[in-house]
Design a binder for these strands. Structure first.
Length: 388
RNA sequence: GCGGCGGUGGUAGAGUGGUCAAUUACAUCAGACUGUAAAUCUGACGGCCUUGCGCCUACGCAGGUUCGAAACCUGCCCGCCGCA
C-alpha cells in the first residue's frame, strides 16, 4: 500500500497520513509545489529543500510542447533533469484543456468568486470525444488520454494523472454532463494506457452540480486508480458568494478511504483548512510562487502586497513569526524587499517565492501537528479568525 | 552682443488653431492572481464634486490676434549651440 492513514480527526474528515513513493515519503496533509516546466520558478532544488518542499508537480502539456516527441523519447526523466531526488507528480495536460480553452474565451478562472469576467481571449482548444486539439504556433497539437500517459511515462514522475476535461463555473448542467462522460471515458483509457508502475490518480469532475460530482466520485472512486484527485470548478453560484467547497462534501464521502485524495489547483490559506477538514490529503497551487513574484507575501496574519507605499520604510520582517531563511536568517525587511521589487531586482521574486513556499509548507506542517494533537478544529478556527 | 534652436503635467517626450486636462513611456498609487502561454494583468494618475461626454485651474511669464490658442503674433525671462 502506497498510502497510509495514520490518524483521523474526531471533529472533521481531516486525516493524517503518509504517502510512500519510490523517491520517499510525503506527509499528509501536504502541499505540492508547482514546477510546470520542470522547474519551480526562482527556486533551486536546494532552496526547495530549505522551504520544506516535499513534492513538486510538473506539467505534461508544457513539457511535451517544449521537448517534442523526439525529445521525450530520449528524456532521462524529471528526477534527473530537475536534480530533484524527492517525490514528483505530473499533471496530465487536462488543465490546459480549460486554461487555454474556455478560461480564455470566457475570461474566467475555475473558482467562481468573481462578479464579472476578465478580458476574454481566443479559445485555443478544440475538444472532441476522443481527445483535444491545441491551437499552437506549430499547428494543431493533438492530445488524448493515451498520449498523455505516454508522455507522463517518459517524464517519469512518481504520481501521474488521468487525462480529463475540467469545465468552467459558467458551464450548464448539460455541458457538464457531456464533459463528464468524456472525462470518465478518458479515465478508463488512461488506466488502460499505463504500462509503468507509476501511481496513477483518477480525476473527479462534475462542475458545480451535486449529482454529477457524486456520480463522478462513485465512478472514478470505484476504478483501479492508486489515488483520486478532484478537479474542475468550485463555487456554488457565480458572483460574490463565498466559496465553501461544498463540492468536496458531495465527492469525498464516495471516495475510498484507503487511497490518497488530491485537490487540484487549490491552495489559498482558507481553502487549505477547508479542504483538509473535508478530507483532502494533498493540494497543489501556483499561488505561493506566482503571487510571490507579483509581490504578494503570505504572513501569519494575512497577505501583504509589498508594493504598497505603506511598507516603504518598514524595517520589520516580512513575517516576524516566520522561521524561513529569508525572514529568520537574512532578516529581510519589508522595506528592503519592497525596494528590491521597485528596482526590478531579480532577488525580489526569489526572496518572495522562497518565503511563500516555506509559508505554505510550514502551514501544512502545522496542520499535521494539530491533527496529531487533536487540535485541528481549534487551529482552523484560530487561523481563520485572525485573518479577519 | 548677434544668429539659430528650444522651454508641455513627477520625469522623458508627443502634439503645432477647435474633437486637448493634453498620445506614449517611465515613475507613483491602488487592485487582481487558485492542476502557471502570468518576473503578469487591470485601474487611477491637475483640482473639485451632485462622477457629468460636469465645473474650475493649466502647456516658461505678460500681453495680443481669433468665435476659439499648448499651438499664431509681440515683448520679457530661461536653456543649449554657433559667431563675436
Amino acid at each position: 500500500m502506497m498510502f497510509k492513514v495514520l490518524k483521523k480527526d474526531a471533529g472533521s474528515r481531516a486525516r493524517l497520513g503518509v504517502l510512500e513513493t519510490p523517491h520517499g515519503a510525503v506527509e499528509t496533509p501536504g502541499y505540492v509545489v508547482v514546477g510546470t516546466h520542470a522547474q519551480v520558478r526562482e527556486l533551486s532544488p536546494k532552496d526547495l529543500e530549505k522551504t520544506k518542499t516535499q513534492i513538486i508537480i510538473a506539467n505534461t502539456y508544457h513539457l511535451w510542447q517544449a521537448l517534442g516527441d523526439a525529445g521525450l523519447k530520449k528524456y532521462s526523466g524529471l528526477h534527473q533533469e530537475m536534480n530533484w531526488r524527492r517525490p514528483l507528480m505530473t499533471d496530465s495536460g487536462g488543465f490546459q484543456v480549460f486554461s487555454l480553452g474556455f478560461a480564455r474565451e470566457l475570461g474566467i478562472g475555475k473558482v467562481a468568486t468573481r462578479v464579472s469576467p476578465l478580458a476574454t481571449r481566443e479559445n485555443l482548444v478544440r475538444i472532441t470525444d476522443d481527445g483535444v486539439y491545441f491551437h499552437t504556433e506549430k499547428g494543431d497539437q493533438y492530445l488524448d488520454a493515451k498520449k498523455s500517459i505516454w508522455i507522463q511515462e517518459r517524464l517519469g514522475a512518481d504520481i501521474i494523472l488521468a487525462f480529463d476535461e475540467p469545465t468552467s463555473p459558467l458551464h450548464d448542467y448539460q455541458y457538464n454532463q457531456t464533459a463528464l462522460e468524456r472525462t470518465h471515458r478518458w479515465a478508463k483509457e488512461s488506466l488502460k494506457a499505463k504500462t509503468s508502475n507509476q501511481f496513477l490518480y483518477g480525476i473527479v469532475q462534475g462542475g458545480l452540480f451535486e449529482d454529477l460530482r457524486r456520480a463522478s466520485a462513485e465512478f472514478i472512486g470505484s476504478m483501479d486508480f492508486d489515488g483520486l484527485a478532484v478537479g474542475g470548478s468550485f463555487g456554488s453560484a457565480f458572483g460574490g458568494q463565498s466559496k465553501n467547497f461544498q463540492e468536496l462534501d458531495w465527492v469525498v464521502p464516495h471516495l475510498p478511504e484507503n487511497k490518497p485524495r488530491h485537490l487540484l489547483g487549490i491552495g489559498l490559506v482558507e481553502d487549505l483548512f477547508m479542504g483538509v477538514a473535508k478530507g483532502i490529503d494533498t493540494f497543489d497551487c501556483v499561488v505561493p510562487t506566482r503571487e510571490g513574484r507579483h509581490g504578494n507575501l503570505y504572513t501569519s496574519p494575512g497577505e501583504i502586497n509589498i508594493h504598497r507605499g505603506l511598507y516603504r520604510d518598514d524595517v520589520g520582517l516580512i513575517d516576524p513569526e516566520c522561521e524561513c531563511e529569508v525572514c529568520a536568517v537574512k532578516k529581510t525587511s519589508r522595506g528592503r524587499l519592497r525596494q528590491l521589487f521597485k528596482d526590478k531586482n531579480s532577488e525580489a521574486g526569489y526572496l518572495a517565492s522562497f518565503h511563500n513556499v516555506y509559508f505554505f509548507n510550514n502551514l501544512m506542517n502545522q496542520i499535521r501537528q494539530a491533527i496529531a494533537e487533536d487540535r485541528f478544529g481549534k487551529l482552523m478556527a484560530e487561523r481563520l479568525a485572525r485573518r479577519g
